[in-house]
């Protein structure tokens, strides 16, 4: 069978589907000072599955932690229009479960084009393999 670390190199999704892969990728992102990208990506996935009674509070928590401060790594990588859309949704009593979808897609794009290829070339990954 293919060892997990070779699977990680197939696609970002293969990497994010494996606990150990996530751990190593997160360590790499911590070194680079951008672990928030990964945490935000998982927060968006979790948000969709969150029960309705927790959703409004969680939307505020995600917004405050990653988006409201324009100098944060996540906020800097999300388009202005997407941030405005999220700001409008956050104020609603029953936020749409898909309200972070566009932002998640944008952050995934950053990881696919930037941090994920760098990870595969990093000492951390190469030493692991």
């Amino acid at each position: 069978p293919t060892p997990p670390y070779l699977k990680w190199a197939e696609s970002l999704h293969s990497l994010l589907d494996d606990q150990e892969g996530i751990q190593l990728f997160r360590n790499f992102l911590c070194q680079e000072g951008c672990a928030d990208l990964l945490d935000f990506w998982f927060a968006c996935s979790g948000f969709r599955k969150t029960s309705q009674e927790k959703r409004a509070k969680l939307a505020k928590a995600i917004y405050r932690k990653y988006i409201v401060d324009g100098s944060g790594i996540v906020s800097r990588q999300i388009k202005g229009a997407t941030k405005s859309f999220i700001r409008d949704c956050v104020g609603k009593p029953h936020p749409d479960p898909a309200m972070f979808e566009q932002a998640q897609t944008e952050i995934q794009g950053v990881m696919e084009e930037n941090t994920y290829p760098l990870f595969l070339k990093s000492d951390l990954y190469l030493e692991y393999t």
Binding site: D18, Q19, I22, A43, G46, K65
Partner: peptide, 20 residues
């Protein structure tokens, strides 16, 4: 604020793959 952080952590963990 603490409970908001807890909620966020719980949300992130819920989205991670389970042990295989």
């Amino acid at each position: 604020i603490d409970s908001e952080d807890d909620l966020l952590q719980e949300c992130i963990s819920s989205a991670m793959p389970k042990k295989k």
